[in-house]
Nucleic acid binder design. Sequence first.
DNA 1: AACCATTGCAACCGCAACATC
DNA 2: AGATGTTGCGGTTGCAATGGT
Length: 192
Amino acid sequence: MDKSCNSQEVEVRKGPWTMEEDLILINYIVNHGEGVWNSLARSAGLKRTGKSCRLRWLNYLRPDVRRGNITHEEQILIMELHSRWGNRWSKIARHLPGRTDNEIKNYWRTRIQKHIKQAEPFANQNFTPAQTASTSYSCSTDQDGSGPCSPPMNFTSNPEPFTTPLSLESNDNYDSFWSMEDLWSTQFFNSD
DNA sequence: AACCATTGCAACCGCAACATC
DNA sequence: AGATGTTGCGGTTGCAATGGT
């Protein structure tokens, strides 16, 4: 009949996450670990879908998520891997520790793709992303692509295991309200 | 100062693959 | 073997911030 009958029990929040929601999610995961996301969302008392919780955690709240500018080396690696695998963002992300598929995808669409478009007039003169990327290092050409790449600097290995949750050195986009450090410190104080 | 266009990013959606019953 | 639930992925959208006029 009318789905509004049970609309009360399935009240689901959408849109941007609040700091309070972030704290609840962090707290819950720290104390109980990740699990089945749907039940996690319910148990934590979040009016979010499991999917939304998972995304928020993976892309934003995890302590090892690295935010801030993509380095030149990372950009080169992204271009190299994209030329090899195409839009397999999660696969590409696995080779960039601390970066998420969403971040890489956004970066590609907003920065690299733009530059490629701008360069298109010159593209006829043998310009391709792959060629641009293949500057001074090579990746082992295992077909599955899981093989290690050898960038000029050894940045593929995660430099530090994020004892400091985030590098906020170029804190362009995360300084308006609260920082992840704020969240995490709050979380530790609050963890029951 | 006000308006408009562009940019960048967080979050949502739909789908396919996988797991469990 | 089929139904149902969950997860992971890639594409897309909405909106705040920023820049330009």
